[in-house]
Every structure is written in C-alpha cells, then in structure tokens.
C-alpha cells in the first residue's frame, strides 16, 4: 500500500522532469465572459486566463508517458480506470500498431488515463467551458459562432470519415494559435460529466427533476448551434472509463501559481 503511493509519486517526478519541455508548446488564452451552449443559471460563465496546448496529445507523446508510468500500460491498467478498448490500436504495452502515425492524436484512452497524463506534467484537463471558449474562435475572430460558415465547416467535419488518422497541425490554427480543436478528434474535458443529457433529447429541454436534481433549468441557449449540440451529446454519452477511436485530449495549465 505505502509502496504503491511512493512508486506513483516517483513516477510523477520522473515524467515531470522528462516532459518539462512540453510547456513550450502552449499558448496563453486570455480569459473573459461568454455564454456557452449549456450555461449556468445566469447563462454567462467566466473563464480565467490559462495556457492551452497548441496541439492534442500525440501517439508518440503517450508512448513516452507509458514508458515512465507502467501503471498506465495496456496490460497493467486497472478495470476501474479503463475498459477493454483501452489502447486497442497498440500492438504491445509500449508501442502503437505500425499503421498508426506517431504524430496522429492519441485515441482509445480513458478520462482517467488522460487526467493522469496531464497531472504528470503539472497540467490538467481543460474544463468544458474553457474548451468551448477557445473552440468558438475561427482563424480571425474570437467568437465566430454567428458566422454561418463557421458552423458549416464544423458540421462537414462531423461527416468526414477517419479524421483521427490524420496528423496534428493540419487544420488551420484559430485566432489564439491553437490547432485541431475541430476537424481531428473529440477531446476529453475535466468535467465532461457536467453534461446532464439523458440521451432522450426531446426531454432534455425539460428539467427532469427525478433523474437530475437542478432547481435551475439546464436549457440550451442557442438552438441553431448544431455543432455544439453534437459535442455536448458526445460528452453526455461518455463514461470516464470509456475509450473511443475518435476521442483524444489535450492539457491546459493555470496561469496563477499552482497550489493544493
């Protein structure tokens, strides 16, 4: 028991040291207030300043991680944190299959694995509000949701097959300098389980007070933002130990000094 905790801490120290250079590939996102698709009671949320990874975590990044953290290797990962599909496109504990490009985004990872990776680098997963805040930008505008072309482009990606096989950095970067928020893979977020959708979408506009406790309505603010609808639907259908072919992640870091 004690040895477990010790070894975990040791692993974290080691990988933090090794992956120190990773903080170079981040951009600063200036916080602000905005209205996301599913907001709070007053619908406006505030996002603080933070740094976000320019690219999603790649296969080769994750291969490095499992080398240093045997706990997260395919054969060692425990059932509490992963299911049978975890790293299913890897040929062994340390390497992905030859057909998988090393600079493509890592997929088939669970939320617990993604969280552990980010924490190992002294970072964390972005919250839904942070992710959506950066994702609503296009190449020139910070809030491009009113532009019809913005929505159309994203919706057309949702129909393009096998985009997870592409390498990172091929979609144009947005005004913040972040790549691949759209057009590559879905991404884990820290509080994806704050999306209280039952899957019965015709009822989801009605606060189902039996299944979900909520004295405020959890309604969508913009019924025409279909791209966002689909992202929230995916989040609502996931459980933390699932992995998916089209689901990866990236990390963010608070700008204030780390504490706790």
């Amino acid at each position: 028991m004690k040895t477990k905790v010790f070894s975990l801490l040791l692993i974290c120290f080691v990988c933090q040291y090794l992956t120190y250079g990773q903080t170079e590939d981040m951009v600063l996102i200036e916080g602000s207030r905005y209205i996301p698709l599913y907001g709070r009671d007053s619908t406006v949320v505030e996002v603080n300043d933070f740094k976000m990874d320019k690219y999603p975590v790649t296969v080769e990044d994750f291969e490095l991680f499992v080398k240093e953290s045997p706990k997260w290797r395919k054969s060692n990962a425990i059932k509490l944190f992963t299911d049978k599909t975890y790293l299913s496109n890897w040929k062994n504990d340390l390497e992905s299959k030859d057909s998988v490009k090393s600079k493509s985004p890592i997929t088939y990872v669970s939320w617990f694995a993604a969280k552990a990776y980010c924490e190992c680098q002294n970072k964390r997963l972005p919250t839904v509000d942070e992710w959506e805040y950066v994702a609503m930008a296009d190449e020139t505008t910070k809030d491009a949701r009113i532009k019809p072309t913005y929505n159309e482009q994203i919706l057309s990606w949702y129909e393009a097959p096998r985009t997870n096989e592409n390498i990172i950095g091929e979609t144009p970067k947005n005004v913040w300098g972040v790549y691949d928020l759209h057009g590559l893979v879905w991404e884990w977020t820290l509080d994806f389980n704050s999306v209280l959708i039952t899957g019965e979408s015709r009822k989801d506009v009605d606060k189902d007070s039996n299944l979900f406790c909520g004295s405020a309505a959890v309604n969508a603010t913009d019924l025409m933002n279909y791209a966002a609808f689909m992202r929230y639907a995916i989040r609502g259908s996931l459980k933390a130990k699932y992995s998916m072919k089209n689901l990866g992640f990236r990390c963010v870091q608070d700008v204030k000094t780390e504490s706790e």
Partner: peptide, 23 residues
C-alpha cells in the same frame, strides 16, 4: 470529480450555491 466519474454521477455547478446532479 474523479470519484463521481467512477460512480457515473454527473454534476454541474449552476450558481455559487446551486448544482445540478444525477440522483
């Protein structure tokens, strides 16, 4: 958050004293 995910419990802060959560 981690514990909730193990239980598949969903929750969201709506206002400083109000949460939506699965029962």
């Amino acid at each position: 958050r981690e514990f909730a995910n193990v239980l598949s419990v969903k929750y969201k802060e709506i206002s400083p004293i109000d949460f939506s959560h699965s029962n």
